[in-house]
Design a binder for these strands. Structure first.
Lengths: 197, 197
DNA sequence: TTCGTCATGTAATGGGTTACATGATTAC
DNA sequence: GTAATCATGTAACCCATTACATGACGAA
C-alpha cells in the first residue's frame, strides 16, 4: 500500500521522507494518512529491496562537515530501474488487491499512469464489490429493520447511502472511460470560506 | 473496538460466537466487518478478563454424549456484572476514542444505550474532527490543484464531498439531539429491487 | 452419502500506530 | 537565543487478517 504510493510519487520526482509524507497527504486526501513510523521503515525496506536509492540531494553542498558519524541532512530517494519495473507491475494488477477498501484509493490516485483497460477493470471490480455489499446490507436490513433501534437504523441507512453514492460515482467514471474522455471534475473551484452555519 | 461491540450485543441477549458475528454485520452494516480470527480470540480474552462467561446454552440437551474430549456444541456467552460495568464505562467515553474513524460507528451503534449528553459530545467531537480534515484538504487542494492530474483531482473532490456529506448528517443529528427528539430515519423503506441499469 | 452451512478455534503474519529520541534550519 | 517547523529514525505494541484444521448437523 504505502509501497505503491511511494513508488508512484517517486516516479514523478526524487523526494525525501518528510516531503514524501506531505505529498502523500496531498495526493490521497481524505482517503488515507500515513505516519512517519510506517514511512521510514518502508523506505528502508524498499532500499534494501533495490527499488529506491539515496540520491544524496544536497550532500555536495554540505560536503565538508558530515565526514564520520552517519549522515545528517536530507536523504533524497529516487527510483531505480527495478523500482520502475515494480511500479509498473503493481499498476498492472487489476484484481481485488486493487479494488478493496484499503487499496482502491491509492491505485486510483495513479490512474493517470495506469493502462486504460486496467483502469476500467478496477473501476468495475470496485463497483461490483460495493454492489455486493449494498445488497448484503439491504437484505439484512429488510430482515432486521423492525428490531433495530433508531440509531442503528440511522447508521445502516447512512452507510447504505454512502455506498450508493460511491456506486454512482464509479458508474460515471466507467462511462467516461469507455467514451475515452478524461474525467474532468465539473465541480466549482472549491469555495475558500466554509459557509457551514 | 470489537470488545465494545461484543459487550453491546451481549447486553441485549446471550449469544454464541457464530451468531455474534452475524449480528455484528447486521448492526455495523457497511461500517465494519470482523473475521472469526479476531472474534474468537477476543472472546477468550474477555472471558479471561471476567467480562463474559459461558452460559452453556444447550449443554443440558446433549448432556450425555460430550463427557470427555472438550466441548462440542455451541458456546453461549453472556455478560457478567463486571462486563456490564465495563460496557457502561466504555459507553461513557466522550473523547477521541469515541469519534475517530475506526471507533465512531461502533459507539454510534449503541447510542440508544448511551447517555444523551455523551451522545451530543461525541457527535460534536466527530464533526469538528471532520471539519478539520475538510479544511486541511481544502487548503492543500487550493495550493496544489493546478499541479494535480484529473484522477487525483477527482479523488480529492469525491473525498471532500464525502466529508461534507457526513458533516451535514452530523449537524442534523446534533440538532435532533438538542431538540430531545429521537432520530427518525425519514428515508423510504428501502426498495427491494435495485434499479441500477 | 455427500454437500452446504453452522460452528469453533489456532498460527503465522501483516501493516500499520503511538510515543519517544534526536538534531538541523529558519524566522523572529 | 529560542521557538517553530523541518527532518530522520527506532521500539513497543495493537488489532486485526488470512489460511488452515476440525467437526456437527440437516437436507437432497
Amino acid at each position: 500500500m504505502l509501497e505503491l504510493a511511494v513508488l508512484g510519487l517517486l516516479s514523478e520526482s526524487p523526494l525525501h521522507g518528510y516531503e514524501l509524507r506531505a505529498r502523500l497527504k496531498a495526493t490521497l486526501g481524505t482517503f488515507r494518512a500515513f505516519s512517519y513510523g510506517s514511512l521510514y521503515p518502508t523506505l528502508r525496506r524498499m532500499r534494501e529491496a533495490g527499488w529506491i536509492t539515496e540520491d544524496d540531494g544536497d550532500a555536495a553542498v554540505v560536503a565538508d562537515a558530515p565526514a564520520l558519524t552517519g549522515r545528517r541532512g536530507k536523504v533524497v530517494y529516487k527510483l531505480t530501474a527495478e523500482g520502475k519495473e515494480r511500479f509498473a507491475e503493481l499498476l498492472g494488477e487489476a484484481g481485488p488487491s486493487a479494488w478493496e477498501d484499503e487499496t482502491f484509493g491509492v491505485h486510483f490516485a495513479f490512474f493517470a499512469k495506469t493502462d486504460p483497460e486496467v483502469r476500467v477493470r478496477i473501476l468495475e471490480g470496485r463497483r461490483s464489490r460495493l454492489e455486493e455489499r449494498r445488497e448484503g446490507v439491504r437484505v439484512t436490513l429488510a430482515r432486521t429493520r423492525s428490531r433495530l433501534d433508531d440509531y442503528t437504523l440511522q447508521l445502516q441507512e447512512h452507510g447504505l447511502e454512502s455506498v450508493e453514492r460511491e456506486v454512482r460515482w464509479l458508474t460515471e467514471l466507467i462511462e467516461t472511460e469507455r467514451a475515452g474522455r478524461p474525467p474532468r471534475p465539473s465541480t466549482a473551484p472549491t469555495p475558500a470560506h466554509p459557509e457551514e452555519s
